[in-house]
């Protein structure tokens, strides 16, 4: 099944990516090929088979809700492209 140009544009929007004209064309072709390849899994009989949710049998891991020393706030802010007074700075979102 071929992926349409419109689907590629829609998926890019969901993934917060802008695509150029040539990228739209490239990913339309690539995704059609990759998903065709992925479709091989549909020839496997999985009646009464449950999904593998995690790679090992660990499920919920609980711990006590205790206050612990975490990474230093200044150290975490050092990589922020824009910051102000100990906070991450973003453009205005409310008019």
């Amino acid at each position: 099944m071929a992926i349409s140009r419109e689907e590629v544009i829609h998926i890019a929007k969901l993934a917060s990516l802008n695509l150029t004209e040539s990228e739209i064309e490239m990913y339309t072709n690539d995704m059609t090929e990759i998903l065709e390849f992925a479709n091989m899994i549909n020839s496997v009989n999985t009646d009464n088979v449950s999904e593998t949710i995690a790679a090992n049998e660990k499920y919920n891991v609980f711990r006590k809700d205790e206050i612990k020393q975490s990474v230093d706030k200044e150290a975490l802010l050092q990589n922020a492209p824009s910051k102000d007074d100990g906070m991450f700075r973003i453009p205005k979102v409310i008019n």
């Binding site: 993934a15 990516l17 690539d30 995704m31 998903l35 992925a38």
Partner: peptide, 19 residues
């Protein structure tokens, strides 16, 4: 994201978002 990621990373994000 568009300027920071390379073509293969975008390809995988696109396929992953699709599925």
């Amino acid at each position: 994201r568009s300027e920071g990621f390379g073509p293969e990373v975008k390809r995988r994000i696109m396929v992953g978002t699709y599925v």
